[in-house]
Design a protein around this nucleic acid. Sequence first.
DNA 1: CTGAAAGCGCTTACAG
DNA 2: CTGAAAGCGCTTACAG
Lengths: 326, 326
Amino acid sequence: MAGITSADVARESGVSRTTVSYVLTGRDGVNISEETRRRVRETAVRLGYAPSAAARALRTGRSDLVLCILPDWPVGPVIETLLDELADELSGRGLSVLVHHGRGARSLTDLWRTVTPRAVIGFAPFADHDLLAMRQAGIQVLGTLGEDDQPDPALPSESQLRIGGLQAGHLGRRRGRIGYAWPTDSRLEVFARDRLLGVRRACTELGLPEPVVRPVGLDVDAAAVAVRAWRGQEVTGVAAYNDDVALAVLAGLRAEGLSCPEGCAVIGVDDVPAARLAAPALTTVSQSIEVQARYLAALVLADLDGAEDKPVHPGHGLHVVERDSA
Amino acid sequence: MAGITSADVARESGVSRTTVSYVLTGRDGVNISEETRRRVRETAVRLGYAPSAAARALRTGRSDLVLCILPDWPVGPVIETLLDELADELSGRGLSVLVHHGRGARSLTDLWRTVTPRAVIGFAPFADHDLLAMRQAGIQVLGTLGEDDQPDPALPSESQLRIGGLQAGHLGRRRGRIGYAWPTDSRLEVFARDRLLGVRRACTELGLPEPVVRPVGLDVDAAAVAVRAWRGQEVTGVAAYNDDVALAVLAGLRAEGLSCPEGCAVIGVDDVPAARLAAPALTTVSQSIEVQARYLAALVLADLDGAEDKPVHPGHGLHVVERDSA
DNA sequence: CTGAAAGCGCTTACAG
DNA sequence: CTGAAAGCGCTTACAG
């Protein structure tokens, strides 16, 4: 045990634990001489005192942790960047971001009870009872799915729809039939469904035929199979679930000797680093992450400060990054 | 507050809190009738009781959390997979993995004091005082840099050297001059240094000339500049810091109209999903993540069980994945 | 301006 | 076989 407690600091600086606590937690209401404050702080530093957060959490029922719950699926560089930015924004206010990779049998309930976080940010929808329990425990619960803190999971997500819509809109300028490259990882289905729905709706609006959906695994052979199928149905442009899938489609196109974008255009989602380096450079839908991160941080901090007004939602921040593939 | 405490469970099932604790923490020494155990457990479930880990941590000085400290740099899909696997392995034993993205001003000391984890796994070296303090607090501290729990940061890492060695060895079969594609993100320098050193040593051993080092940013133009320089010095193969950089080199090659591997071979590190989809498919050094994850999990669990013998290190698990680019 | 005391919810010797 | 009690380290009314 490091074993330095507030009692040690108190004894060493000749004051009571009360005073130590007041000085160190920075309570303004109490009048403590500047001299005493200085001495206490100096002693704390000298002894290497760090308050036991377990005790503090037990006492106050709250910690300085923000818990991010990642879903079961591979998150990729976009979410990773978002987490980094978020940690950056919040650390300035003494909050630490902790990330839980959603896999593993342990229940969410166990986890948040263990961590007693100040806020929980979900990257996939929570079960109703978890949501309720956390709210009851005074934990701020946020979602990252866009418009609402915790949208109805049965309803399609507005941002996901819009992603699909942007893809189809961009491809639709060529007026041909659109293909959809569906991810083979079943954990992505919930998002793929909404994105595809967005594509569908845009096709209808634009007077284009129904999109041709094909599963595309992340290897050349699987992609080549899909490409052959699309070719047979005169598809002129493919919207891919994300950039990884789009890269596979590009590889499939090459394997089948089809040019891109002339033979078949391709558009992805995410703008991962590899996108601009692909052959041809991948056109994609990007989700300005910094804005989203700042918004999330602002939500957490607003609650922390007991602010009246919530920060204004910055919008989806979605836009097409036009390169060579579409 | 959810507010269900062990006292509630005790009252509701007509026993003392002691008994509740014994039953729920599964102490074998004490004789409690099967009937009582059953009733306590059933009541706990019915009330939705989850023990306050803050209290438990305060009392025992220990939690069921394993804290992973990521470094300041972008970790990428390999580490992400490692974390997922690790969480999987450990969750079976009631341990939760929490990841801290190393950015942010908050000190590591604050963090581990807050979380009181059972073990801390560092993905970059710890400062000496942090290491000492954690060990003193009875926290198991592990590194992921390979051979040693916490190797001397001044010494080159054995695995990093070996990565470079494998790259050079593979490229060296063509007997030409080797180029090294150095990452522009300065946070990666500590690893890049050791990998390059591995390349250097292998070149010397193989009787090849000194490698030609060039920084390569993650865009076509930056890569093209490097490619022109290499071409001027008759480089026949390039070892890239990782797959992302290798993808950039590939793009630079295309931009300069050089064929690959004929004009110039390229080898990366990591085997990210995009590697097999590149044009040409990227040859790379892979680090068999599952093995590494299982080993880490085994280390944590061995300590948990107070096992005498440490699990056997599985070796670096490094190997060249040969595709078309080298 | 400062201190004595209660209590957060648990675990665990200890006493029946 | 089970319970009363102490104590982990903190914060915070409350009393001087």
